[in-house]
Amino acid sequence: MDILERCDIMGDSRNKWKNIGVTEKFNVAFEGIFETIRTERHMKFHCFCTIIIFILSLFLDIGKNEALAIIISVSLIWIAELFNTAIESCVDMVTEKYHPLAKRAKDIAAGAVLITAINALFVGYIVFEKKIVLNMKDMFYLMKSSYQHTVLSIFVLIIVIVICIKAISGKGTALRGGFPSGHSALATSILTLVTSQTNNPKIFFLTLVLTILVIHSRIEGKIHTFFETMVGAFLGWAVTYLILVIVNL
């Protein structure tokens, strides 16, 4: 395939992009991110580090300026890695043979990722150096004294884990379908939270019925398989139970 044919294909792709709906554009954008996570080992590592940084930022006493610095640094790493992957794909599309300019393009793109990673390391060190030790006790006190913070943290963590697993497994989109079922995870999380707060069997069974209805609706609507909903349900229970145990230590 020569360059002109490739340009025609790119032109057709741009026309198709203009004609799709807003929701589909979001799905396409998410798919680009997921594809990078699935195929690039470095992006998997960035995803893991992002989860760790998010958890630390959520529980530690971080000011607005520090939070903004972390958000910008993490975003820059993701953006640089996405551009790096895109540049590598474009170079490989044009030529599969060794060429000095192709090597130069890939090396420069990799250098951009390296700079953003070093910047993030410095920012993380400056922000978390003393706060991890000094605020560890305050974090557990906040979790124990404020049930709302605990619940919010659990929900956010479950959503992040589900999206990352979907990206790695390559099934479904961030908002619909795939492995595992996010709705089932949140439903069983709520069931676990309610169970931990009440001794009334009527409330427990009512919440259990609602949880089963949520899981059944995902299967009945053919959005998820039985296995996907069961894995999601186990994930929601496991994350919620683990955090509740840590908070109550």
Rank of each mutant, 00 (worst) to 15 (best):
I203R: 05
I9E: 12
K97P: 01
L244S: 04
L175A: 09
L206P: 03
E88G: 15
F26M: 08
D107P: 07
K131A: 13
D92V: 03
T85F: 10
K18A: 14
S73N: 15
G177S: 15
A117W: 11
K18W: 14
G170T: 02
D12Q: 09
K103M: 08
I20S: 03
L4V: 13
I190V: 13
I87Q: 08
V113Y: 06
W78I: 08
I159G: 03
R41F: 06
S89P: 06
C90D: 14
I163V: 11
M93S: 11
W17K: 10
I243S: 06
T36V: 10
H46K: 04
D92C: 08
I33S: 00
I70Q: 03
A120F: 10
I55C: 04
G178K: 02
A80M: 02
K144V: 07
R104G: 03
T240F: 08
I9W: 11
A233C: 05
F26T: 13
N65Q: 12
I51V: 01
A110M: 11
Y147N: 12
C49K: 15
F122M: 07
T240Q: 11
F155N: 06
F26V: 12
C7I: 15
Y141M: 14
T225P: 09
V74T: 09
N248T: 12
D12T: 06
I132V: 12
A110V: 11
I243F: 13
G11F: 08
I158P: 01
E35W: 00
F227V: 15
E31A: 15
T211Q: 07
F30G: 08
G11W: 04
V91M: 02
